[in-house]
Design a protein around this nucleic acid. Structure first.
Lengths: 295, 295
DNA sequence: TCCATTCTCTGACTCTAGTCAGATGATTCG
DNA sequence: CGAATCATCTGACTAGAGTCAGAGAATGGA
């Protein structure tokens, strides 16, 4: 790793965290502990406490106390869920919504103030650079993990994949039609399911099926809508190829539908060449292959 | 202020502070409170505790306790200053230096790890965008303040200005030669001294002398070496012009030395036009003027 | 010289942000 | 139906990060 790049990252960190007062919303909640403000924000238009707890990764006792404090301040009401009387539902009161909107406004004012000090050209550059950092930093923390097909996260990805294709294909799409895959085929050594995670949310997946000395078959490649434009598809493809090579596959091949133009462009630019149909997948219009053997 | 810009700043804040674990050095000090690590870092190669206290803006009792804890851990030694036996000097021990270097290495490793996940092109874009954000964020928090010429900060700026010119002019420079200014001339309504501050450090200055209905005379404009390239000179000039207009000066004029090529370029691009010599300042080669009257 | 000021230290607090071990009631599974 | 599991609450702790009010030495200025 280039030393000057590392030094730049550290300089960035220093400046950004020193400006914490300027950048960070935290200090806006002057009159209230940060934890409470955060909860206020996350409750939004009403939520069950269980999901709050798991998502913010907080101790249940701690959340309970925070909620009671917010309740005492008249910002939140809680009630037991009708469906499951163990779970608590939290809802903002009128005052709670007002308080949240106030935090929101202050946060906007702070950001506006920061920008206002700069002349137009510099302001535009700053905003553009922030957008870049935000995008690329998000991309940088995506992690790839081989996941069991029975894992709920895996199920979610495959359903999202199917929903996406169903929306985009003429005549829709169903996982049940076409060539199907048994969960056992998505486990090593038969195959694998690779998932891209952004913190705790899945943002992409891809499947490899191995056939001994034959080329590995790539399927079910999907990138979540909000995570597109981060170069995630390319990285996912590269990660899948790396794992195919690890399993000694001589090549990767795949079929795709004409509607998936970005995917086709990605395959071409990643070194895939179009080949004659190697199966009779009904949804496919194009078949591609890339050798993993070093020339 | 454009709403989408404000929204971008807030999105940036959210992503950057959520990645706090990735970006922030804080969590590297797993085995030690953050305050102690910070002190360890700031002591560097030995410092007096007084300056640590004022610079980090910490309570004296708090610093005292932190230092004793570091001393107990064998990372720091303290002794009384020979010059003033009230002040304490803190110095890192061998172990303290090793600990500091360890923190440094971990911080580098963390930054490198972040970059490593990205493919080359994205990595370069991220680093470039971070450099932009860092520069522009720094520029955005510079504040301008009219300051009394007897203030130590003012003295520092004027000395730095003189030192800079002394280094750059053929034959050097001295505030005592040429046209001099009495401190009283740098106070309203005779004139003013404007200082640009980055947190607690002065990073630029400029002087205006008012002459009733005659043009205001701009002098002593200086930008600190490490703060250059942030567009600070241009902003300083604009702030000075704004204040000259406030005092009803019809124009601003100034003289400058041929060695100061960036300054001359700045004046020209800010709308100043070269005029015949209006004084006999011995260091000057060029005289400029800009009208403040709206056409 | 003496009095005010400066620098540091000590002891006694506070507040935030948690963690941990049960207790209690609701629900689900065999 | 009974046992296990789940969601929440309560009480008892802890650690970090400070704040505040003096006390005591050293120093500087009248």
């Amino acid at each position: 790793m280039d030393e000057t790049m590392v030094a730049q990252v550290r300089r960035f960190n220093r400046v950004v965290t020193q400006q914490a007062g300027v950048l960070n919303d935290r200090y806006l909640a002057r009159d209230r502990p940060v934890g409470e403000s955060r909860l206020l924000w996350e409750i939004g238009d009403g939520r069950d406490v269980r999901s709050l707890r798991t998502e913010l990764d907080l101790d249940s006792g701690y959340v309970s106390r925070l909620l009671r404090s917010l309740e005492a301040a008249g910002l939140v009401t809680t009630e037991r869920s009708a469906a499951d009387r163990r779970v608590t539902l939290a809802r903002l009161t009128e005052a709670g919504r007002a308080e949240r909107d106030l935090l929101d406004e202050r946060s906007n004012a702070l950001a506006a103030e920061l920008l206002q000090t700069l002349p137009d050209r510099q302001r535009e550059r700053l905003v553009a650079a922030m957008a870049d950092v935000e995008r690329l930093l998000t991309a940088a923390i995506v992690r790839f993990a081989v996941t069991d097909p029975d894992d709920p996260v895996a199920q979610h990805c495959l359903r999202a994949y199917a929903a996406e294709l169903d929306a985009r294909f003429d005549g829709g799409f169903s996982l049940d039609r076409g060539i199907r895959a048994d969960p056992a085929d998505l486990r090593l050594p038969n195959g694998l399911l690779l998932i891209a995670m952004l913190h705790a949310t899945p943002v992409g997946c891809g499947v490899l099926l191995f056939h001994g000395a034959e080329p590995a078959h790539l399927k079910r490649m999907w990138v979540a809508e909000p995570a597109r434009g981060l170069g995630l598809g390319r990285r996912l493809l590269a990660e899948l190829e790396r794992r195919a090579a690890e399993q000694h596959a001589p090549a990767v091949r795949l079929e795709t539908n004409a509607a998936l133009t970005e995917a086709i462009a990605l395959y071409r630019s990643a070194g895939y060449t179009e080949v004659p149909a190697f199966n009779d997948e009904p949804y496919a219009h194009h078949w591609f292959e890339k050798s993993l053997l070093r020339q």
